[in-house]
Simulated assay, not measured.
Amino acid sequence: MQNQTIVGIDISNLTLDICIRKDNQNQTFIIKNEVKAILGFFRSYQKHELLIAMENTGRYNWPLYEALAQLHQHRVFVVSPLHIKKSIGLVRGKSDKADALRIALFMEKHHRELHQWKPSPVSIEKMKILLAERSYRMKVKRQLLSQKTDYPRMKKTGLNKTLSVMNKKMADLANEQIKLIESAIQDLIHTDEQLAKQAALIRSVPGVGKVLSWMMLAKTAGFTTITEPRKMACYSGVVPFDHQSGTSIRGRSKVSVYADKAIKSVLHLAAMSAIRLKNDLGEYFQRKVAGGKNKMSVLNAVRNKIIHRIFAVIKNQIPYQNLLRVS
């Protein structure tokens, strides 16, 4: 790392706090979180190769992604905020300037362990945005449905009918928007030959529906960022880890709480669907449960198997049923 210039960026909605670290010396800057401002700032570093690190903050990252995709000489890393938080140990106080320095120090220590960020295809970026919008409306819909059960208790106030009608209109609107978003995702996939082929292969796996196929494509960027089923299983929180210390603590193996909860819940629904159908996964579940295994433990194994089957059909470019015949 001698003479290597490291850039730590703390991102907020309107501004970026930037820490430039070289030869154990730090410089800090604040610029607007806009593409034009970002390109202008890094223009003075055109002759340098920078190691640029930032946390994943969702849509606040988008101007940086757009700008840095044009600066090919730099190496960019997008790191989980939890990864940084767990690595820096005990800290006191918090500010955007201090966070930018902490990100730079984290990169200085751990850059060899991290995967470099690469711009995703436009179709993948669009899919991620549409899935985020769908997820938001699904959450709103669930909240509306939960409120619906409370209105009968308001009968004596005379507001129950008015609020029920308003609730229904909002829920119907959320449903319409969800359908429009799902239609837009389908159109997006159909216009991309590679994504269309991959989606068809994924859905040939028992239990896998359209939502899981979309999420797998988005989370793996078309199977380019996550290329191994074991890594995807770990990311999805379906891999059990040992729980022991010395000779006194020997707990059961259990899955980690650090997982993508959204894809884990959809995988659970896929597993529930798969075990109800006539297929090898359903037979596996029944056989293990009949042998005395815990149902939830077996169901988690089914989730894991679904992930491995998805990656198998993508690797072999053969639908699942045909893959069974070949193997």
Rank of each mutant, 00 (worst) to 15 (best):
G40L: 02
S120D: 04
Q286M: 06
A233N: 03
V208W: 00
K179A: 14
K85D: 03
G292Y: 04
L130V: 12
K148G: 05
A37G: 10
D260R: 09
T15Y: 00
A270I: 09
I88F: 03
E182Q: 12
I129G: 02
S253V: 09
I306R: 01
K305V: 08
T57F: 00
A98V: 14
T224D: 09
I129T: 12
L159I: 11
L90T: 14
A171V: 14
V79N: 07
N56Q: 08
I30T: 13
S44C: 09
D23Q: 10
G58R: 13
A37Q: 13
K118N: 08
V313E: 09
I306T: 03
P63S: 09
A69M: 05
D96A: 00
I202P: 00
D17G: 00
E34F: 01
V326K: 10
D23H: 06
V326P: 01
S204L: 10
C234N: 15
W214Q: 05
Q116D: 00
Q321R: 09
K219T: 10
K36R: 15
V208H: 01
A53F: 14
K126G: 08
M296W: 05
S297R: 10
P81Y: 14
M107L: 15
T247K: 10
P229Q: 05
S135A: 15
K169W: 05
F223K: 04
L299Q: 08
I275P: 09
L201W: 04
A301Q: 04
Q286F: 02
L267N: 04
R43E: 15
C19D: 10
N300V: 13
S120N: 10
H74V: 07
L277S: 15
S256T: 15
Q286A: 08
R303V: 03
L90R: 13
H48N: 14
Q317P: 04
F241K: 13
V165F: 07
P240T: 11
S135F: 12
S44Y: 05
K109Y: 01
M215T: 13
Y284N: 04
D10P: 00
T162R: 10
Q317H: 11
L195Y: 03
D192S: 12
A262L: 02
A301F: 01
I124D: 01
G237H: 07
N160G: 03
L51W: 13
I181S: 01
M232P: 00
H308C: 14
H243A: 08
H74L: 07
S87L: 04
W214V: 02
V326E: 07
R137T: 04
K86A: 05
M154A: 06
A259S: 14
Y320A: 12
W117R: 02
L101N: 06
S87A: 15
A100T: 01
A196G: 05
H115F: 06
G8S: 06
K169Q: 14
G40N: 14
Q244H: 13
L105C: 06
Q73N: 14
V35H: 12
L195A: 08
I52N: 03
